[in-house]
Simulated scan of single mutants.
Amino acid sequence: TKYSQIFEKYKPDENNLLPISDIENDLYTFVFSNLKKVIKSKTKGTERKELMELFTVINDYNNFSRVLRLKKYYNLTPEQIKNNLLYPFSSISEKTLDRMCRAESSGEVFSVMQETHTGKMIEQIGYVYASDISPRVKYKLARKNMYFSNNPSVVMISYMFVAETELMNIITLIEGTRYKLDSKKIQSLLIV
């Protein structure tokens, strides 16, 4: 496949383990690079601007979520966290991302993110867990684009994001019911 060149450069270490986060970064870099090339070669004007903005904001929040997750669950150093971010596809400056990586707490990461133009959206969405923020922002942007964009490609990709979210909500409802979660808890997990 077109991904083989990425996998070929990684070999298991002495414990037969692969550097999964490095592979994940390379895969995302490959996908975002190709996406950027397609957008630049196939679109122009406001269509290009809207598509680039949509994917850049999504990636900004993915980087934000990664910083939080890598700090909390993996206790990585700021340098290790920086190596796991996708800088070329972010509207957040490298200096600001560096501040997030060096932050001492999750609260400080949130504060730094909320200083950015992109980060101001955090206040507009409700979330239960920090990992909810990225999909909620993606959904909110997609809904907005479906109603206000004049570009068919932007509306179509936004529709796909909304449909994907609706499917995730159905799965959440089914699993919540199956595991007998309180209805308020299930409702809090839905992305609306």
Rank of each mutant, 00 (worst) to 15 (best):
K71P: 00
E108G: 00
F32R: 15
L17K: 13
S4F: 07
F30L: 05
E8V: 00
N75I: 02
K9Q: 15
F89N: 03
A130Y: 15
A130W: 03
L18H: 11
I157H: 07
N169C: 02
N15F: 13
T96L: 01
Y61W: 08
V112R: 01
E8Q: 08
I191K: 06
T118H: 00
M168V: 08
V112S: 06
K44G: 10
N62G: 11
Y159R: 08
L85V: 08
K36S: 08
N59M: 13
V67L: 02
N145M: 14
K49W: 03
M113Y: 04
V154Q: 04
Y28Q: 11
L70I: 02
S90H: 00
G119M: 09
I20K: 14
L181P: 00
T165E: 06
V109L: 02
S105T: 14
I23T: 12
Y28R: 14
G126P: 01
R99E: 15
T177F: 14
L97P: 07
Q124Y: 12
L97A: 07
S93Y: 06
S158C: 07
S41Y: 03
K71T: 00
L167C: 00
R69F: 06
L27S: 02
Q187E: 13
N75R: 13
V112L: 03
L68R: 04
T118G: 00
T118D: 00
Y87L: 15
K180V: 05
S106H: 05
M100L: 05
L35I: 10
M160N: 07
L27R: 07
K11L: 11
R99Y: 10
E175C: 01
N63W: 10
Q80E: 14
T1R: 10
E164H: 08
K95A: 10
K140R: 14
F161G: 02
M100D: 08
P12H: 11
S149V: 12
G176F: 07
N151T: 08
Y74E: 09
L68S: 06
M146E: 10
L86V: 07
K180G: 02
D13F: 02
A103P: 03
I23E: 12
L51M: 13
E79C: 03
E164N: 10
L181R: 13
F148D: 09
Y74K: 11
F161K: 05
S65V: 01
T46C: 05
R143L: 12
L51C: 10
S106P: 01
F7L: 14
K82G: 01
